[in-house]
Design a protein around this nucleic acid. Structure first.
Lengths: 167, 167
DNA sequence: ATAAACTTTCAATAATTATTGAAAGTTTAA
DNA sequence: TTAAACTTTCAATAATTATTGAAAGTTTAT
């Protein structure tokens, strides 16, 4: 596998993994491209590399900026805007976890809490609904808290020693 | 909020959260329905409750069974097949984490490993590709291992004490 | 062996989501 | 102020994904 092949493989794999971290394909591919680029890229360059339209590139870059993963880089003397992504994987993971928690997990926790707090009318089905949604609420909340805590540890040693703890 | 409202809210919320754990809406809704049901349900009952077609129900039940989340329950004297889901949230989390790891994460780790193992031709861009995909590989592998370990702990106390560790 | 009761399959269709491209908007330089 | 260089917006369209429903398949009882 040469450089070009590896690059294409990486971008397309990372793109299809997008769903796993809750973003769409083009968004993930743009991020992947910037992630392995040695310099900031212009919209033109991104469009060219990924063979996507100007509109698509613009919209997805904005989303990536909303997430806080990509930033505009103004190059002196250049009219065009250039873009870079966070290059540190730990920081990237931290941002993604935080955003997903805020956008998706927290609202679900709220609903689970509401549902599990309905009045117990004494029927078996109500008891079951309360019991099960309560269990789901607690699990989701714990998992969310843990992931955020974990991912917030800047030092890698915590991760390593934790891993050892469970081996 | 009464029982019916709470039930509908739970099923629809859990359904839309499906993407987060990598399954589709109907699949997640069927699982949600079974999760709060006090008894096994037939295909007929599931179709009726969720207002979905027979084909859809059949296909999604099969997928849930493939995941190992739902099982057929044969009720003596009944011709129909009945279905139940795993009721323990910890066990559910364990199954989901294991399946997602196997289906999605492991293959990505493989690709990241392949890509980061290309020959270093000494150019800056190759060095960057190798460095960044290596970092992603290590992060992904560590995260995958941790999640599986965590979720495999049957005892809840581990989770609790871990959480304390990071508070 | 037959028919009733049930489940699965899959081509057709619907619903959803992503992408395009051109017009409108913005910024900068002269 | 104007025009060139660039970016954003958004209605139209394409691509993808989910759903239907009826025919085919299977199992069980007689």
């Amino acid at each position: 596998m040469n450089y070009e092949e590896a690059k294409i493989k990486f971008i397309s794999t990372w793109g299809s993994l997008g769903t796993l971290w809750g973003i769409n394909k083009a968004m993930a591919q743009i991020q992947a491209l910037l992630f392995i680029s040695t310099k900031p890229l212009s919209m033109e360059e991104i469009m060219e590399e990924l063979q996507i339209s100007r509109g698509n590139t613009s919209m997805n870059l904005r989303q990536l900026m909303d997430w806080g993963i990509v930033t505009k880089e103004l190059i002196p003397g250049e009219r065009k805007e250039y873009f870079t992504t966070e290059k540190d994987v730990q920081e990237l993971a931290r941002i993604v976890a935080k955003e997903r928690s805020r956008r998706e997990i927290k609202p679900v926790i709220k609903v689970l809490n509401d549902v599990s707090s309905i009045e117990d009318d004494g029927t078996e089905k109500t008891k079951e609904l309360i019991k099960q949604t309560k269990a789901l609420h607690d699990l989701t909340e714990t998992a969310d808290a843990m992931i955020n805590k974990l991912v917030n540890q800047q030092q890698n040693w915590i991760t390593k020693s934790l891993l050892k703890l469970f081996t």
